[in-house]
Design a protein around this nucleic acid. Sequence first.
DNA 1: AGTCCGTTTGCAAAGCGCTTGCACCTGACT
DNA 2: AGTCAGGTGCAAGCGCTTTGCAAACGGACT
Lengths: 175, 175
Amino acid sequence: MKQPCSQHSHPHRLVQQPLTELTEKLRAGSRKVTVPRQAILDVLRRHAHPLTNREIHAALGKADCDLATIYRNMHTLEKMGLVKRFDFGDGAARFELITDGSDHHHHHLICRSCSTVIEVEECFTRELEGILALRHGFSDISHRLEFFGFCPRCQKSQAPAQSPVIPAAHPAATD
Amino acid sequence: MKQPCSQHSHPHRLVQQPLTELTEKLRAGSRKVTVPRQAILDVLRRHAHPLTNREIHAALGKADCDLATIYRNMHTLEKMGLVKRFDFGDGAARFELITDGSDHHHHHLICRSCSTVIEVEECFTRELEGILALRHGFSDISHRLEFFGFCPRCQKSQAPAQSPVIPAAHPAATD
DNA sequence: AGTCCGTTTGCAAAGCGCTTGCACCTGACT
DNA sequence: AGTCAGGTGCAAGCGCTTTGCAAACGGACT
């Protein structure tokens, strides 16, 4: 928090629809609409694929804030149903904005080499959840499913098409 | 390594079939059949469900060895195809012995409360891999899939049927 | 505009899983 | 028995994440 961050005075791109819907959701949980909070959601809004806390931190411009604040906020936002957590198995949690109210279920196909991310709509797994619930008596069953492979570019070039781990890779790869 | 760990002198339960097949596999990679190595595999052999490095370490009896040694060995054993790595999303890798040569593909259903683990044989996801390979040009596609829910016991009792994180839970729960 | 209170933030320290450098030890082969 | 690549213990360190605490802030009320 270093900047007043035009918010009530100048109706910027930063604020707009957010302040409408967002404010309500935040207020509902007696949460405050803070500058870091808005900035984080704004970063997420500008990225199609899940970002790590560190990536979010790097993407914050003037509205820079402490990493710990981002970690805390991601928990809060996740609990409030504003973001969804993903785990690509590399030890860093990733978050995606839940666009509309309807949390549209999807998975990811991730390049093992350059970390390009492609969204996967299909999910044959839902039905299996029902079977498992019946067979084992489990309730509230959910699942985590991610695919890994080598993207077209990385198959050709021996070296990764782009440095791994940073999944902003090949801008217009396949999706 | 604090004990001679009866190994060649007394044909214990600790050694037997292992020394047959195991030795071969290890030798094939110019690897040595060491005491910690055997002890780790023995622990894995006695547990049906994936164990974390820490759990393996705790389960080693007299053949206690350094945690770092376990971490190193799990990498080695994984690369050699003797164990399979699983990720339950709690930040700790888990390992399961690959019983016979044929790595039988399966997933897990994990209780969010007490961490009971149930093996899931079905997998509707393989076919999806083919679709994704075609559509996006990815190669060598694999997937990670785990299910989460509340087991029957934890649904009844408010409190977890057993302390979480330690997946040795409900010995004869449902599987 | 001023005040108040619970929430949020920054900073720094620490927790945890995991890795690594290095000197010493050991299994396996001659 | 001798040799040496491979393995191990110990301790330090790395990256992600959490937490304690005092100061700052947001929102509501006057």
